[in-house]
């Protein structure tokens, strides 16, 4: 691939130090990968090789222990996400980087429409337009309209996952991190999600994804990175 990478992960390692047990736990080590605009890079590997840790490190939910996470911003600046100022990270989360996690974390008591439209509100889109666009996306993902006005707290796993996905995709981030976005979906719904992700790719969104099924990797990935079992380095 010759085009410039949107994100280049160089030698990323993440370890946890548990003070209580005075123990170091390696989570992922020496990860190298690239993500390109309009392409999907799939992370594969056995359970426990730290796939989610990589996504969380990029999103800065985890503090990377070592390595560089070079991200090219919309303005062309190269930023190491491991060291960027917190305010900068918050700004990127608002404007450029989306994360669809396995579990839906929402503000309690918030209507599904507003949950989905939140990334738009944060960008200054008004309520009316935000809700309209959220409705469109929810319809496309086959969420029954009767659920739109209620908080997703009581939804089924599959419904929650689609709400989560809708929220991650609505603002068309430049970089999208996907952590098993279709884990609890039936085949038919999975197809809809796949189609939606393909469309976002065509729109130029660069994606880094973890899938629970190998066939999804085959269907969607432009590039595959396999992680190795993390090892504990001597300090």
């Amino acid at each position: 691939m010759t085009s410039k990478a949107l994100l280049t992960v160089e030698n990323l390692s993440k370890t946890f130090f548990l003070h209580e047990q005075n123990k170091v736990i390696p989570s992922s080590s020496h990860v190298n990968l690239s993500v390109y605009s309009g392409k999907l890079t799939a992370l594969i590997g056995a359970t426990g090789v730290g796939k989610s840790s990589v996504l969380k490190s990029i999103y800065r939910t985890y503090l990377p222990s070592s390595g560089r996470l070079l991200y090219e911003t919309a303005t062309g600046e190269i930023l190491d996400l491991a060291r960027a100022l917190e305010h900068r990270i918050l700004e990127l989360r608002r404007e450029e980087i989306g994360f669809v996690t396995q579990f839906l974390h929402t503000l309690p008591r918030q209507k599904t429409l507003d949950v989905v439209a939140m990334p738009l509100y944060r960008q200054g889109v008004d309520k009316q337009e935000g809700r309209a666009r959220a409705a469109e996306l929810l319809a496309e993902l086959n969420i029954p309209e009767r659920l739109w006005e209620v908080p997703p707290a009581t939804f089924s796993g599959g419904e929650k996952q689609r709400v989560n996905l809708a929220r991650g995709l609505i603002a068309s981030p430049r970089l999208l991190l996907l952590d098993e976005p279709t884990a609890s979906l039936d085949a038919k719904t999975t197809d809809r999600v796949v189609a939606l992700i393909q469309r976002k790719k065509e729109q130029g969104v660069g994606m880094l994804a973890i899938f629970h099924h190998a066939d999804l990797v085959t269907r969607m990935a432009d590039d595959v990175v396999e992680l190795n079992v993390p090892i504990l380095e001597k300090s």
Binding site: F17, H19, K56, T61, Y62, L63, E86, L90
Partner: peptide, 19 residues
């Protein structure tokens, strides 16, 4: 300790915060 709230909650660094 200071950081992004999700990081503080998911990857706390200081012994006290972990506890």
């Amino acid at each position: 300790e200071s950081g992004l709230t999700d990081q503080i909650l998911e990857d706390p660094q200081h012994a006290y915060t972990q506890q």
